[in-house]
Design a protein around this nucleic acid. Structure first.
Length: 414
RNA sequence: CGGGGUGUAGUAUACCGGUAGUACGCUUGGUUUGGGACCAAGUAGACUGAGUUCGAUUCUCAGCACCCCGACCA
């Protein structure tokens, strides 16, 4: 991609209304555009990051046996009434609307009810399960207060997966595999060291759920962790009984602020029973189905990554989710043939490169590159034209330049 | 939803009861070119409505929007 043609531009000034770093940097660098409070558009750079994150998650979910689908944003009132979750007093974040013919519809804030109802058309026998399906979907939640940039929006992208299994053991097995897959995701996007599997409230169906909590001051949650024992507990459920069960004392725990980047939840058989999803077992008898629900907030994850990986000059994307692998910066004035040729070679070699071919001063190019935060950087200038080597640096240490060959560069990027 | 705050150009800001100044951006010309250059000439603005007043961007009220703290977060 030629930066000359990238339609977004960077801004020097931080927007007055944004306090959090994720919002400030993503807006300044041109990744996102704020439409209204808690509602952001994703521009070419931002969309690239979203797609990188989605692909990593897709890999991991497919490895679990998940199959991707897309449900609808408009949902039926009667399904949510069956589980007593239509009432605004029960679920206070509903967006609702009415069709021309008078039918009430809800706008998707979650999908357990419609997806479980849909399963009645496809799951009839113990032979039809397990089923693991997932989707990437825009969720709409009428939050009383949106905050912290893209960490808590009214419209956001979520990966949600649902498991339908025949019994508790099968559910447990998949639940535990998902727990591992989720940690794989967070490791791969660079959050591994700061993300803890946390005991949290299980709601009406089960004693506990598990949240994936990433340490950041921009987060809204508070959890207690013990790094050596790898124990984490949401303060909502912290109790003496739980501490005794886990074999830790209060003074061994560290209190940290976190953002909830993922959540896995066991609904047991209750939800399927309410909605009438049952299967026949080997003996032909009707048995209930176990439902598990597994979410990752894609856009929140993106914001959390920015909160963790930035410095005074801008974002420092982990390589796995960076919008481009390489930032090629040309400082050549009159003859740009050398840079053009290198750009073509890189593209031909399959490198995802943002090529700064703009006719502006070097300082501006460097500042923009730091702000956008692409990890690998190569600078072409009068100094480097004569040599066969490339001037290379990394976003985390832009002053540490080294001269490397084209082959060395492509190796580093892979 | 309770509390607090803020609305001036594309962005960030200043002053003022007598119709608005600066910086960045953008346009044109010239000089520059390894960390957001310089000169010149342009471009573009008071959230909406009502009230007070000879006169309101400024004061008052209402609405709307945005931000922060709390509450909420299945």
């Amino acid at each position: 991609m030629r930066q000359r043609h990238l339609f977004t531009r960077t801004q020097k000034q931080a927007p007055r209304d944004e306090v959090t770093k994720n919002a400030e940097l993503l807006i300044r660098a041109g990744f996102i555009y704020k439409e209204m409070a808690g509602v952001y558009a994703y521009l070419p750079l931002g969309l690239r990051v979203i797609e990188k994150i989605k692909q990593i998650i897709r890999d991991e979910m497919n490895a679990l046996g998940g199959q991707e689908i897309t449900m609808t944003s408009m949902q039926r009132k009667d399904l949510w009434q069956k589980t007593d979750r239509w009432d605004d007093d029960v679920v206070d974040i509903w967006f609702k609307s009415t069709l021309k013919n008078g039918t009430d519809v809800g706008l998707a804030w979650s999908h357990e009810e419609p997806i479980t109802d849909m399963m009645k058309s496809f799951i009839h026998s113990y032979k039809d399960v397990p089923v693991f399906v997932y989707q990437f979907q825009t969720k709409l939640r009428n939050e009383l207060r949106a905050k912290s940039g893209i960490l808590r929006g009214r419209e956001f992208i979520m990966k949600d997966m649902y498991s339908y299994t025949a019994n508790e053991q099968e559910h447990e097995s998949f639940y535990n595999k998902t727990k591992e897959a989720y940690m794989n995701v967070f490791n791969r996007v660079g959050l591994g060291g700061n993300t803890f599997i946390t005991f949290a409230s299980g709601g009406a169906f089960t004693e506990f759920s598990h949240e994936f909590q990433t340490i950041t001051d921009a987060g809204e949650d508070t959890i207690y962790i013990n790094r050596e024992k790898n124990i984490a507990i949401n303060e909502e459920v912290l109790s003496d009984t739980m501490l005794a069960d886990l074999g830790v004392s209060r003074d061994e725990l560290e209190k940290v602020k976190t953002a909830e980047v993922g959540n896995i939840f066991n609904f047991g058989t209750a939800k399927c029973q309410q909605l009438g999803l049952t299967i026949t077992d080997e003996r032909g008898e009707m048995i209930p189905v176990h439902l598990g629900s597994y979410g990752i907030g894609i856009t929140r994850l993106m914001g959390t990554i920015v909160e963790l990986f930035h410095d005074a000059d801008g974002i420092m994307w982990p390589e796995s989710v960076a919008p481009f692998q390489l930032h090629l910066i040309s400082l050549l004035q009159d003859s740009t043939d050398h840079a053009e040729e290198l750009y073509k070679r890189l593209v031909d070699a399959g490198v995802d490169v943002l090529y700064d071919d703009r006719d502006i001063r070097p300082g501006e190019k460097f500042k923009d590159a730091d702000l956008i935060g692409i990890p690998h950087r190569v600078v072409v200038s009068e100094k480097t034209v004569e040599t066969e080597k490339l001037e290379y640096s990394h976003r985390t240490a832009t002053r540490e330049k080294s001269m490397i060959s084209f082959e060395q560069l492509t190796q580093r990027i892979q």
